[in-house]
Design a protein around this nucleic acid. Structure first.
Length: 480
RNA sequence: GGGGCUGUCGGCUAGCUUGGUCUAGGCUUGGAGACUUGGGCUCUCUAGACCCCGGUUCAAAUCCGGGCAGCCCCA
């Protein structure tokens, strides 16, 4: 075993394992600037898949893509006080252009509410102009000073941000929910990452929002990772940016708005959740390469026959919708290739050797179970298609099971602390809805309320901290 | 926000405590070739490094200061 592969076990040194998987599978690399990363072909291809899937979904529901500039005048950012307070510590500024000092410094967007909404004010006059449902794929900069992690926390990251304006609160509520459902579909059914869905508390909500909904996943090290957020902004921004319209009754009204986003950090979640000691394990639906074919020639046996069989199978799969690569490089041994492609997370490997040729079969190897299956050549396309689906659901089911196992229900604060310290995960507890208790728990344990279920769960005890009457069941965890 | 650790060929590292044959060693990778191919084969040849800036000293990979970058722990 050389250093080409992963040299630590996921279960023994999770942090080191995570870094190695990303670097060695060539998903990403470090950039020369602190906290910045390079998305290499492998991770960018995954991101493109995600874009494809999500674009199709939101376009079906009337959203369109746009691009707004990355520079935001300071005065714009300051208009909504809460928003400004929330982002100011992390904003990177441009103060000089060429050799002249700028009159007003420009923020490099940490998010685009302000620049987009100042423009929405121009575009919206009448109820006929509504709704506006725009999305953009871009990068944002948040100048993290704490330690940064590849994909999870970087100073610049890729994301999509959707920004809508509606005539009524109900419509905006509906939009928040619709996007939340779209996110759930992408994250669970494509990335195979199961999530808890709910609202954020006042303390955790987006700066400037009326309320925030979010999707939270649980990582193998017991920490929760936020996979996406969808905010009801109310009229907070429309009032400060003066986004008004005349309704059908000729009455002037402020619009109701939403914003929502998910970022490349979800790729990090996928890596952590599905990867193993051999490296990456990609869910078939987002894997840039779903199948790799490795011919196994022997000297003395007719190598040409094996080559041509491999090509034939390759062609057959290419004609279907399966994304397939034929690795017929002579310089590497089959064993070397097995390891290399497993490291990259390819879901299915097809081996074709003398034994297979003789029996008119191919040998399939599953990345998720390491199982080897012999298949009749003629069944390849059908069987591979079926198997890809099976691997997809196997990955999700496994992760779902571990999510469920990570949730511990507690009634007392002692239990809370004990379980939280020992294994992390989600702690399900009753809460009095008082921010003071939430704050104390965070100070004393580091756990925050990750989510308040949308459909209230049945109260089963007093508030876990203060012992007063509880108002809701919530999920605590340490956050990434 | 606080504390700690680290930085040597592309990767992993030896050397640093006690400055001096270090002209920086090994493994791996990269390049050329041979031999092979059902789990990272083997052999030959070859290329490749002391993070940056400053200081101490006859002499710095080694000691000191600063910077940059990475990692860990606590809040």
């Amino acid at each position: 075993m050389s250093d080409i592969g992963i040299t630590v076990k996921k279960s023994e040194d999770f942090s080191e394992w995570y870094t190695q998987v990303i670097l060695k599978s060539e998903l990403a690399d470090y950039a020369p600037v602190k906290g910045c990363m390079i998305f290499r072909e492998h991770s960018y291809a995954i991101w493109e898949k995600i874009q494809e899937i999500f674009n199709a979904k939101i376009k079906r529901t009337g959203h369109r893509n746009v691009y707004f500039p990355m520079f935001i005048p300071e005065s714009f950012l300051k208009k909504e006080a809460e928003h400004f307070q929330g982002f100011i510590p992390q904003v990177a500024w441009v103060t000089v252009g060429g050799d002249s000092q700028l009159e007003e410094k420009l923020a490099i967007r940490p998010t685009s509410e302000t620049i987009m909404y100042s423009t929405y004010a121009k575009w919206i006059r009448s109820w006929r102009d509504l709704p506006i449902k725009l999305n953009q794929w871009n990068s944002v900069v948040r100048w993290e000073t704490e330690s940064t992690r590849l994909f999870l926390r970087t100073r610049e990251f890729l994301w999509q941000e959707g920004h809508t304006a509606h005539a009524t609160k109900e419509e905006a509520d509906q939009e928040v929910k619709e996007i939340l459902d779209a996110y759930k579909d992408v994250i669970e059914n494509y990335l195979a990452v199961p999530v808890l869905i709910g609202k954020k508390t006042e303390r955790e909500k987006f700066a400037g929002a009326l309320y925030t909904t979010a999707l939270e996943a649980m990582m193998p090290d017991g920490k929760a990772l936020q996979m996406g957020t969808s905010h009801q902004l109310g009229q907070n921004f429309s009032k400060v940016f003066n986004i008004k319209f005349l309704d059908k009754n000729e009455k002037e009204r402020y619009v109701w708005q939403t914003s929502w986003g998910f970022s490349t950090r979800m790729i990090g979640a996928m890596v952590m959740l599905h990867g193993d000691d051999k490296g990456l394990m990609l869910p078939p639906k987002v894997a840039p390469i779903q199948v790799v074919i490795i011919p196994i020639p022997y000297k003395g046996v007719d190598a040409k026959v094996i080559q041509s069989r491999a090509r034939e199978i390759h062609e057959r799969l290419q004609k279907s919708t399966i994304s397939v690569v034929l690795d017929d490089r002579a310089e590497y041994t089959p064993g070397w290739k097995f390891n290399a492609w497993e490291l990259k997370g390819v879901p299915i490997r097809i081996e074709i050797g003398p034994r297979d040729v003789k029996k008119k079969q191919v040998t399939l190897a599953r990345r998720d179970t390491s199982e080897r299956i012999a298949l009749k050549e003629d069944d390849v396309v059908n069987e591979v298609t079926k198997l890809l689906e099976e691997i997809q659901s196997n990955l999700f089911n496994r992760a779902k099971k571990s999510l469920e196992e990570s949730i511990a229900t507690v009634e007392t604060y002692d239990e809370f602390k004990e379980i939280f310290r020992k294994k992390g995960g989600f702690i399900r507890a009753c809460w009095c809805s008082n921010s003071a208790c939430e704050e104390k728990i965070k100070d004393e344990t580091g756990a925050t309320i990750r989510t308040v279920p949308l459909e209230k769960e049945k109260i089963f005890s007093k508030c876990v901290y203060c012992g007063e009457e509880a108002k809701e069941v919530v999920y605590f965890a340490k956050a990434y």
